Computed example of a mutant assay.
Amino acid sequence: MTSPKVDVFQAIADPTRRKLLRLIDDREMAVTAISGHFPISRTAVSKHLRILADAGLVKERKVGRETRYRFEPEPLLELKRWLAYFDRFWDNKLSVLQHYVESDGSASTPSPARLQASTDKEKKE
Rank of each mutant, 00 (worst) to 15 (best):
residue 42 R to T: 11
residue 93 K to V: 09
residue 63 V to H: 05
residue 28 E to W: 03
residue 22 R to V: 11
residue 33 A to G: 03
residue 108 S to D: 15
residue 82 W to K: 15
residue 46 S to E: 09
residue 88 R to I: 05
residue 79 L to N: 11
residue 76 L to P: 01
residue 113 A to M: 05
residue 125 E to R: 15
residue 56 G to F: 00
residue 35 S to P: 04
residue 44 A to T: 15
residue 17 R to Q: 04
residue 27 R to L: 11
residue 102 E to N: 09
residue 13 A to W: 05
residue 45 V to A: 07
residue 53 A to W: 03
residue 3 S to Y: 11
residue 54 D to M: 12
residue 42 R to K: 11
residue 109 T to A: 15
residue 99 H to A: 10
residue 29 M to Y: 01
residue 63 V to S: 07
residue 47 K to W: 07
residue 49 L to T: 01
residue 116 Q to A: 07
residue 39 P to R: 12
residue 23 L to G: 02
residue 106 S to H: 09
residue 19 K to L: 06
residue 63 V to D: 06
residue 57 L to T: 03
residue 87 D to E: 14
residue 2 T to N: 14
residue 93 K to Y: 09
residue 59 K to V: 08
residue 9 F to Q: 14
residue 124 K to C: 05
residue 123 K to H: 13
residue 3 S to P: 00
residue 69 Y to H: 08
residue 121 K to N: 09
residue 70 R to Q: 12
residue 14 D to E: 14
residue 83 L to S: 14
residue 34 I to F: 03
residue 14 D to R: 13
residue 118 S to I: 15
residue 20 L to D: 03
residue 30 A to W: 00
residue 119 T to F: 14
residue 111 S to I: 04
residue 65 R to A: 06
residue 66 E to I: 08
residue 54 D to F: 07
residue 8 V to M: 04
residue 123 K to W: 13
residue 24 I to K: 00
residue 121 K to P: 01
residue 94 L to G: 04
residue 63 V to P: 00
residue 120 D to Y: 11
residue 114 R to S: 12
residue 63 V to T: 06
residue 125 E to Q: 13
residue 9 F to S: 13
residue 10 Q to E: 15
residue 46 S to T: 14
residue 2 T to D: 13
residue 56 G to H: 02
residue 56 G to Y: 01
residue 51 I to Q: 01
residue 14 D to T: 08
residue 94 L to R: 06
residue 17 R to T: 04
residue 91 D to Y: 11
residue 73 P to T: 09
residue 36 G to I: 06
residue 42 R to I: 05
residue 58 V to W: 00
residue 114 R to M: 10
residue 5 K to I: 10
residue 94 L to M: 11
residue 28 E to V: 03
residue 96 V to Q: 02
residue 32 T to P: 02
residue 72 E to A: 08
residue 103 S to A: 13
residue 46 S to C: 08
residue 35 S to K: 12
residue 10 Q to P: 01
residue 6 V to P: 01
